[in-house]
């Protein structure tokens, strides 16, 4: 009994985590308008999704935002990790501390602090404010991914490059960047997913000029059940899953 009981328990918890997702996916192919009864197989909700212009625009906005936020946060995150790893500078602990604060503080605290900043500095709520906010909350994840890669790295290589007369920039470009490449790709993919799925921070820092997908879903699901949301949710799930598997695959492959 002591052998199978824990396993049954594990299976039950996984069922709890995955049954709602499964129901969502199955009902996205439901022909019936009701979210509760099965009316046969159909793709009508996917069709109505793509015929909804506002929805398609929000989709493109979200993709573009995720793409740019992931790219900027990967660049800045990589530079931060390199600086933390290689340079000795004053108040390094403060820098670390700020990254830690971003990771640990409740999302809503980050959200209102950024909103306050944008409104007082005069940054219009829209693409730019969303980009700055998303890059900020993606940053610690990229830094951690890159730092993990750098920590197992042979220090004699950069030293050799320096001895051979390479400048700091050349050494970084030719020695360090290739080494951290897998971590950069993984960090980029994680940033992309984080940005695409964010609700809390985006609710605060977005404006009417730039509508993004999670906020559109939010306004749809507050009022009731919308079958289009099932279709959209399924697409997002598949998309995130592909991204996650890709990033894991890159990390695992690079370790060999």
């Amino acid at each position: 009994m002591t052998r199978w009981l824990p396993r049954v328990y594990l299976v039950l918890v996984y069922l709890m985590l995955y049954v709602p997702i499964g129901v969502l996916v199955v009902f996205s192919f439901n022909d019936s308008r009701s979210g509760y009864t099965w009316g046969g197989l159909s793709l009508r909700w996917y069709q109505s999704l793509f015929h909804n212009n506002a929805m398609v625009e929000a989709m493109w906005n979200s993709l573009w935002l995720a793409l740019s936020a992931a790219t900027v946060s990967t660049i800045i995150g990589a530079l931060t990790a390199l600086a933390l790893h290689r340079y000795r500078f004053r108040a390094k602990k403060v820098l670390n501390g700020m990254l830690f604060v971003v990771m640990m503080s409740p999302e809503i605290v980050l959200a209102i602090s950024l909103l306050a900043l944008f409104l007082l500095v005069g940054i219009q709520l829209g693409y730019l404010s969303l980009l700055l906010a998303h890059v900020t909350f993606c940053l610690p994840f990229v830094v951690i991914t890159v730092m993990a890669r750098l920590s197992g790295f042979d220090e004699s290589l950069p030293e050799a490059a320096r001895d051979l007369g390479a400048s700091d920039f050349t050494m970084t470009r030719t020695v360090l960047i290739p080494v951290i490449m897998p971590a950069l790709l993984a960090g980029w993919l994680l940033g992309f997913t984080l940005s695409l799925d964010d609700v809390v921070v985006s609710t605060f820092v977005s404006g009417p000029s730039y509508e993004i997908l999670p906020l559109r879903i939010y306004s749809m699901v507050r009022v009731g059940l919308k079958p289009e949301v099932n279709a959209l949710g399924t697409l997002l799930l598949v998309f995130s899953l592909v991204m996650l598997m890709l990033s894991q695959w890159i990390l695992i492959r690079s370790k060999r």
Partner: peptide, 22 residues
């Protein structure tokens, strides 16, 4: 398998629960 849901949209998952609990 535990981390997969973490990377998927939390809003969509909350909505999925609503379908079950209604």
């Amino acid at each position: 398998l535990l981390i997969v849901p973490f990377w998927t949209n939390s809003l969509v998952r909350t909505y999925a629960l609503k379908m079950l609990l209604a």
